[in-house]
Amino acid sequence: MTSTEAARIPAQRTEARPDTAVRYVEERHWEVLAGTWLETVGGVQRCSCGDAECAAPGAHPAHDDWADQATGSATVARRLWEQRPAASILLPTGRTFDAVDVPEAAGFLALARMERLDLTIGPVTCTPDRRMQFFVLPGAAAKVPDLVRALGRTPAALDLTTLGEGAYVAAPPTRFGGRGAVQWARRPTPANRWLPDAEELIAPLVYACGRDARR
């Protein structure tokens, strides 16, 4: 990897969040959404939404109309995070990419197989709740169930879902309350700017999720 490429990879923890959000917009043309954040109240971290039972503290949209609030403007993104520097960085799916979501153990197994097969792999996130999300071309949500069936598997029997229109992923360095931060298992670089189609990656993912289910 050249120094130029390395300089363009969003840092996982050291870069200020406004800078990271702007990089996602400018370098990947991803729309970004400023979500909730973590607050410390009485010595306890909780989600800014105020729900003590929040399922994803600090890492979900703050408003019901979040899909309309996502922006592809670097100027708007910087202003949003300068106003709320602790806000999570959320990326709407179904626009410039979809994401195939699998358990962490299955994700790392699939990733190793993909590398051995020399497949094109896009960015991949690893979340604190032990999930991995593989970024693929938009439209995957509609085709993945049929692709799984074509491989002789039943979609409902696998812990594999596809996030498309109306969904989102949390991007590094977003933190989940008490669990840690989202990280890149494979960072965005100029080399993986062009995303794979879900059809290219589905076989290793189905194989890995099948093994995970048998465990």
Rank of each mutant, 00 (worst) to 15 (best):
A141F: 00
R17K: 14
V22Y: 01
T120C: 09
M1H: 14
C49D: 09
C209V: 09
R187K: 15
A140Q: 06
T2A: 10
P57C: 07
L160S: 06
A67Y: 11
P196E: 01
L158V: 02
P138A: 09
W37D: 07
A140D: 08
W81G: 02
A213E: 14
P123S: 12
A6F: 08
I9Y: 00
P204C: 04
Q69R: 15
A11D: 06
R116M: 12
M1S: 15
G178E: 10
L119C: 10
G58K: 00
T189I: 01
R153S: 13
H63R: 15
R8I: 04
A156R: 12
G107Y: 04
V102Y: 00
A142C: 04
Q12S: 13
P204L: 08
L158N: 05
A87C: 07
D101G: 00
T174K: 01
E165Q: 12
Q183L: 15
T162Y: 05
P128C: 06
A74N: 05
D101T: 03
V206E: 00
E165S: 13
C126P: 00
V206W: 01
Q69A: 11
R95W: 06
M114E: 05
L151N: 12
W194N: 11
R116Q: 15
C126F: 10
A191F: 02
L91Q: 06
G42F: 04
G152P: 07
E39G: 08
Q133R: 10
W194V: 11
S73T: 06
T14E: 13
Q83L: 12
G152E: 01
Q69D: 09
R46G: 10
R130L: 15
F108P: 07
M1D: 12
P173Y: 02
Q133N: 09
T125C: 10
L205N: 02
A208S: 07
V124R: 00
R79D: 13
P57F: 07
A156M: 08
R13H: 14
G152A: 11
A112P: 01
A86P: 04
P155G: 06
P92K: 01
G94F: 01
L137H: 04
P173M: 03
A67E: 10
G72A: 10
A191L: 13
G177T: 02
V148Q: 04
Q12K: 11
P128D: 09
A62P: 03
L109R: 14
N192H: 09
P61C: 05
I9T: 14
C49L: 12
G178R: 09
A203W: 03
L33P: 07
R214D: 15
G180W: 04
V182F: 05
V76E: 15
A110H: 09
A213V: 12
A56C: 09
G166V: 05
G164S: 08
W66A: 11
Q183K: 11
L160P: 02
R153L: 04
L117C: 08
T93C: 15
R179G: 06
R153V: 10
R215F: 08
G177I: 04
D51R: 13
E53Q: 13
G166P: 11
